[in-house]
Write a protein that binds this DNA or RNA. Structure first.
Lengths: 234, 234
DNA sequence: TCGCCCCATTTTGTTGACAGTTGTCAATAA
DNA sequence: TTATTGACAACTGTCAACAAAATGGGGCGA
């Protein structure tokens, strides 16, 4: 059982009154899941949670039903709810969806590009090149994340952005999560430069293609890495 | 209030025991929303529903929280839940997401195309041409729906298919729903033929482009029709 | 007549309790 | 030793009741 009884997260919950208890619980549960504190496959015990958060089971059940609809947990009747476990096949499917959404975001962004944004994006890619030379993955990863987030949130389509983030989050449920983050840093950043050029040109077709390809290649790297060693999906 | 007290749908609910009451209620509520029996903006009264379905409020609350996560209803604290109302801007955003997903489906399908599927798809397009000549929209619409569904469900990516359908469903919440279905029948079917050719060629790039463009053009038709007359989104 | 305040009613938020189901473990028999 | 059975414990599914908030209407005063 991965439950602890510290009261840390509890404060955030008790303070709020403007927002419903259910949604606060949902946010907290989502955090626990995405950070891995609740591991994929783990069972979510309603009584334990209600004790931990000092509420009854009702709001917790509502929160888990919401998380089920979002695809983060699985509800089995008379058995309980479990943190969803993604297979390699699931992860690959998600990559295709991600590629489609990210490509569309690139297209939209190319058609509404600004100089400031181009400067900001270029700076991120430059810094990624720097840390990639040093092979420092720990520094590369957050920059990479910021780069992608900036593109998606700037494309002007909030629906698309929300969906994109939902699927990126879902990848956290993938057991062999290290594979997702792997891949050549320098190679990946060369793709970033191609994306930048397409965005700067204002050519929507080209931007969509480069952005789509970036995720598609990441998927390829995932498959290649997966078929090598840790391909078990039990 | 659009509630009636007939016991028709109730039977389906009481019979089942293997599936939870919550998910049965959720399905029924989703049906009521998508068919328009519960109109966009309508308030969902927990007590009324619990009386109507003969349950307590608990399962109904869980079902509505799930529908909220799916984007079909909106929950306002201490006020209740309302059937979500889509603005024109929302609908346009959804079209972009749909285009991205449909394009990806086209690409995937092109790479795993079979002769039988091509025959089946061609038959649908042929029949659409027939009824389009007669200007019979009532016959065209279900054929068109079947055509798109067949493509998406055959692409081999269940995650993508589920997302696509989720967004198509959400379009039912758009007030000026007639606009969504509008557009030239013959024009639209000409795009279908281009998609067929791309699928038959097995060229993923080309298939993605033709499929993406098909939805993008539908979006354009929506915008054109919307800016003309019924552009109010109150 | 118009605007504001107060109170009753309605509705939601949350809780605790009970019933039914699942999983476990020990005792028994082969 | 191993398989089976029965009882117990833990947990989920559902419900009814209480508390808090919002809605609506009537009365009062300007």
């Amino acid at each position: 059982m991965t439950m602890n009884t510290d009261t840390g997260p509890l404060n955030d919950l008790s303070v709020v009154k403007s927002v419903s208890l259910t949604s606060a619980l949902e946010k907290e549960l989502e955090r626990l899941i995405l950070t891995g504190e609740l591991e994929p496959g783990a069972r979510i015990n309603e009584i334990h949670l209600s004790n931990r958060f000092g509420t009854s089971r009702g709001p917790i059940r509502e929160a888990t039903r919401s998380l089920e609809a979002k695809g983060l947990v699985e509800v089995v009747r008379n058995r309980g709810v479990f943190v969803r476990r993604l297979t390699v096949e699931d992860a690959i499917e998600i990559y295709d969806v991600r590629a489609a959404l990210f490509g569309q975001a690139g297209r939209l962004l190319a058609e509404r590009m600004t100089d400031e944004l181009l400067v900001e994006l270029t700076r991120l890619v430059d810094r990624m090149d720097m840390v990639a030379d040093q092979g420092s993955f720990d520094e590369y990863y957050p920059l990479n994340l910021a780069f992608h987030n900036l593109i998606v949130t700037s494309c002007g389509n909030r629906t698309l952005a929300a969906e994109y983030h939902r699927f990126v989050n879902k990848l956290h449920l993938f057991r062999a999560r290290a594979l997702v983050q792997g891949g050549g840093l320098a190679v990946s950043n060369r793709e970033h430069r191609a994306m930048l050029e397409a965005l700067a040109s204002g050519d929507g077709d080209r931007a969509q293609m480069t952005h789509w390809r970036h995720v598609a290649l990441a998927k390829r790297r995932l498959i290649a890495a997966g078929s090598g060693g840790a391909s078990r999906n039990d």
